[in-house]
């Protein structure tokens, strides 16, 4: 199902990972790289959750946790994730709004 996200302009790779970080399915790069991508996305999700929990704890402001997703922007590429779906994209070619909307939908599949 998530394969259709590759049709979005600028999306280079996509993966769906389990709650233990194992790859469920992925497209756009070799299998061993997809496994690493899934592990990275899973680890990063846990870190963001830890930091969001602390933000919530220190500010006493509701609405931060659990976080819905995250985006890390590099010079030419970015990685975005919502739920347990993550994608690698080319920042020059992609519409981030479109990708985030597609990720949001895919995270409910």
């Amino acid at each position: 199902m998530i394969k259709q996200l590759l049709a979005v302009d600028g999306v280079m790779a996509i993966c769906h990972f389990r709650d233990d970080g194992a790859l469920v399915e992925g497209y756009g790069m070799p299998d061993e790289m997809l496994a690493g991508f899934a592990k990275f996305a899973h680890d990063y999700k846990r870190i963001v959750l830890g930091n969001a929990d602390q933000l919530s704890m220190f500010t006493q402001m509701s609405g931060w946790t659990p976080p819905g997703g995250w985006v890390v922007e590099g010079d030419g590429v970015a990685v975005a994730s919502i739920g347990n779906v993550a994608c690698l994209m080319n920042t020059q070619e992609v519409s981030k709004n479109e990708v985030m909307k597609e990720l949001e939908e895919a995270s409910h599949w």
Partner: peptide, 13 residues
């Protein structure tokens, strides 16, 4: 304990 657990998790990762 929340802070220490979170940092340990980050360092491990």
């Amino acid at each position: 304990s929340i802070m220490c657990r979170s940092t340990s998790m980050a360092v491990h990762m």
